[in-house]
Computed example of a mutant assay.
Amino acid sequence: MANGEQRSAARLAAVQALYQMEMTGKGLNEIFAEFESFWIGNEIEGARYKEAEVEFFRDILRGVLKDQETIDRQLDKTLADGWPLRRVDPVVRAILRAGAYELKKRRDIPARVCIKEYVDVAGAFFGREESGMINAVLDETARQYRAEEFFETRL
């Protein structure tokens, strides 16, 4: 499997893991063990989970947890008035946190690639409305963290 596909699978697994951590209260090491042993690359209830770049998966989870307070504050500012992050669906919250982490810390990945990847993750769970909202929030987040990638030079 190509590196890009493994990273896409790692993003999806990271979102699922962040959601599970929030819903169950499981810790990071327990989630690493569970996902790496039972989910990533395995078949569960007839569904085949793709191989994922494990270190990338781990980086996203560690990064979100380490900077979650800062990430959440930034996302609160970006979301529409009256809709703080805590009021957003927990899967959407996990997608936004993972995407915001990558935009903030993983400058080796172009912002537009990051946004598209998390919009694709959203498409696995939701329809166009939620995917569009995730696109808008991550686009604004990218412009705050990486304005230089969106600056267009004119001749």
Rank of each mutant, 00 (worst) to 15 (best):
F38Q: 11
I60Q: 00
A122V: 02
D89S: 14
F57K: 08
E36K: 09
V88P: 07
K66D: 11
E53V: 03
G41Q: 04
T70A: 11
S131R: 09
G46I: 06
G123C: 00
A33M: 08
E36F: 08
V92T: 15
W39P: 01
F57T: 07
E36M: 07
R58D: 06
N135R: 15
N135C: 05
R73D: 08
W83T: 13
R93E: 03
Y118R: 05
R58K: 10
G123E: 14
R48M: 10
R97P: 02
Y118M: 13
V113R: 12
K66Q: 13
T70N: 07
D81F: 12
G127A: 05
S131F: 05
A80T: 10
D76N: 15
K105H: 11
K116H: 12
R48Q: 12
R86M: 09
R97H: 08
A100L: 01
V88I: 15
L75N: 04
R48D: 01
T70P: 03
L75F: 08
I40H: 06
K50M: 07
I134V: 15
R86H: 09
A52N: 03
P84A: 07
A122C: 09
A100P: 06
K105Y: 12
N135S: 14
E43M: 10
F32C: 05
L79I: 04
E69N: 10
D120P: 02
E43K: 11
L85Y: 03
R112E: 14
I60D: 01
P110C: 04
E69W: 06
D108M: 03
I60Y: 01
G63T: 06
N135L: 15
V54N: 01
P110T: 00
K77N: 13
W83L: 15
A47W: 09
K116D: 13
A98W: 05
L61Y: 06
K104E: 10
P84N: 05
I71A: 00
D89M: 08
R112M: 13
L85T: 02
R58V: 03
E117M: 12
E102R: 11
E43P: 03
Y118I: 05
R86T: 14
L138T: 09
M133I: 04
V119I: 11
A100G: 07
G127I: 11
R112A: 13
D72K: 12
R48P: 00
A94V: 05
G132Q: 11
N42M: 05
P90N: 11
V54F: 01
V91E: 08
P84V: 00
E129F: 13
K66F: 14
K77R: 15
D108V: 09
K116A: 15
A100V: 10
L61I: 12
F35W: 13
A111N: 01
L103W: 07
F38W: 08
V137L: 02
A124H: 15
E130L: 11
E34V: 04
E43A: 10
L61F: 07
V119Q: 09
P84W: 01
F56Y: 15
I109C: 00
R107P: 02
R97G: 08
D81Y: 12
A111K: 03
D108G: 14
A124W: 12
E102N: 13
E130A: 15
L103F: 01
F38S: 10
C114T: 15
T78W: 00
V119L: 06
C114R: 10
G46K: 05
R73C: 00
L85H: 07
A136I: 00
F57C: 07
R86N: 12
E102M: 14
L103N: 09
L96R: 04
